[in-house]
Design a protein around this nucleic acid. Structure first.
Lengths: 346, 346
DNA sequence: GTTAGCACTTAATACAGAAGACTGCTAAAG
DNA sequence: CTTTAGCAGTCTTCTGTATTAAGTGCTAAC
């Protein structure tokens, strides 16, 4: 347990350092303390804070910087989140007020706005229900010229489609029969079940109607996969450059590919609870991210599930400011998306 | 008109400099010349080449580097394109041999391969016919729950779709009537004409069937725009970092947004003729690109038009190597796409 | 026309010294 | 027992200087 004064000192160290990036020394610190103590006293306190591992120095005569544990302590105990700026809030509301064609667009644009507001990299994940989505229905629409479009609709109002080519002549009535068969067998079932049943039950049936079902089956598989993987967007990828010390391309490339791998990246921003969570440097399970922190906030869209927004920045980021922004943003996004769903889906 | 020896010297300067990035001096140069002359002689020749503006120096006692005019002269008169490596060719053929769902995927992946082969940034443009595409047909597919999918098919086998929401109840038969009306009036017409007629002729007609046609009309407009703007892909955006001296983010951001603006970027890589063209630094009409060169190659897909692939690199790039790669690539891509079309479209 | 030689220029590198910002410790004061 | 002033010591950063290496232009001789 820290004394009040030690807490104050740690707080100022974190605040100062995240703002300026320069290690903070005893003299500058003592002048900022609300109580009057000399720099020597501060030095004693700092020696203690260093001993218990909350701060470190770069070299024997430098000022102090927070350690990972120091950031953690700060985030858990010291930080009071700045409420979001009025001007920032205006920006969010403005950008979310446009016309959107679909959820994906809103979520994608959210990543851009969030990265602009913070000057860091933003990650957003579409709302997802807790249970796997359920197959609403399948369609096959003949487009002429051997082209067919497959459309899949989930119970969560997600629509996925893909065009494929079919050899030989497949009349509209045959197509309809296939569709009816598939919907009879699979509609209302969870997607993961649908995926397994596709191989076992559907393929043999399809053979009754189509000679060469390869492209059709492959397409069904494709749209199913697409509908069941979670959609993931990145905004402000380039900002990574400005807050990474080492901007050597060979250092950055693996980080970029990590971020662009949906499955990998989604792991980092899946927040378990219902609020804001902060993961700092080595707490992230990937070594590549050891110099970065991720602030995650979930947004709730009622019956349509929960989504996640996140900001990726340097470990030394102004946590209280960013947390304020993430918190404000997720509230606005919840509202916007609830509205969207209310308007269009009964 | 340059003498043979002057040409040799210029050629070696360009080759050396593009390879090493270091200004080349008289001594190193003389040892590379096939004829035996002293460095002093080379100095005299270099003084002349500098006088007529083909080479420059950074400071009074540095080696020489090619000027923009020097590169131009080299590209036009001196360069003999390296035929593409066997191993590079294998890479191209392998990556193009996979299963693709549509043209877009092939063209997009081409950008990635091309950037990997060159370590520069690659830009690719889908094949386009010389005349504006013609509207094949429209579809409106009811998806239930107030959702409708609009599908547009062009005569060039491009399929564009978008989901929209419609207020109130619009039965399938009404939808069919609208579709029939639109196709009657517009099928077979060029897209630009369709776009103008949409506002003037179609909207009043639609009003007969639908009370609130806003979302429908907006959607039609969207898909039309999408079908008539040229699709454009970028690969290896990050490579820009490694070949840009100044990797300050404020310098790079405008370049990235230039590249990501389809219309702007497409201007740079529209090649007029049927072959490879090289644009060097200030010859590109945008000041942001003054330190870069673009090598453009068109690929021909017969009746389905021509597309473009391009490589964006530093002005000091190894032109002969890159030209060889672009040339090899466009040939392969032509073959692949002709195959693709032959297989699926009549 | 070519070449050797030399004076001159500039960038890059290394090094030494000084300044500045800190710390840790000690001893005195509260 | 806590706080403070003072001071020696450490380490980084900046500045100026010297040195080296690469390369040029010019001149005079071949």
């Amino acid at each position: 347990m820290l004394t009040e004064r030690e807490k104050m000192i740690l707080k100022i160290i974190v605040n100062d350092y995240t703002k300026s990036g320069v290690p903070v020394g005893s003299k500058a610190l003592s002048s900022q303390l609300p109580i009057h103590v000399s720099s020597a006293t501060v030095r004693n306190e700092m020696a203690f804070l260093e001993e218990i591992g909350l701060i470190t120095k770069n070299h024997s005569s430098s000022g102090r910087v927070p350690s990972i544990e120091g950031y953690r302590y700060y985030v858990d105990n010291l930080l009071n989140p700045n409420p979001i700026d009025n001007s920032d809030m205006m920006i969010i509301q403005n950008s979310l007020s446009g016309r959107f064609r679909q959820i994906d667009e809103i979520v994608q644009q959210s990543a851009d706005i969030l990265s602009n507001l913070t000057n860091y990299t933003a990650l957003t994940l579409k709302p997802e229900q807790e249970t796997t989505p359920i197959l609403g229905s399948f369609r096959l629409v003949p487009l002429g010229n051997h082209k067919v479009m497959a459309i899949l609709i989930t119970d969560n109002d997600e629509v996925v489609n893909q065009v494929f080519h079919i050899d030989g002549d497949l009349g509209g009535d045959k197509l309809d029969a296939v569709v009816r068969m598939i919907n009879d067998k699979l509609a209302g079932k969870p997607l993961d079940e649908v995926i397994t049943k596709l191989k076992t039950e559907i393929v043999p049936e399809i053979l009754k109607y189509v000679n060469n079902p390869d492209s059709l089956v492959q397409t069904l598989d494709d749209v199913l996969m697409q509908a069941s993987t979670n959609q993931f967007y990145i905004g402000g990828e380039l900002n990574l450059l400005s807050f990474t010390d080492n901007n050597d391309i060979s250092y950055l490339k693996p980080i970029y590919s990590l971020l662009n791998d949906t499955d990998d990246a989604a792991k980092f921003i899946k927040s378990s609870d219902n609020s804001i969570s902060v993961q700092i440097g080595p707490e992230l399970s990937n070594d590549l991210l050891k110099d970065y922190s991720i602030i995650t906030g979930s947004y709730d869209v009622g019956p349509h599930g929960k989504g996640v927004i996140a900001v990726l920045g340097p470990t030394r980021m102004p946590y209280s400011r960013v947390i304020g922004i993430v918190d404000g943003f997720r509230n606005e996004l919840s509202k916007k998306l609830r509205n969207y769903y209310d308007k269009y889906n009964q």
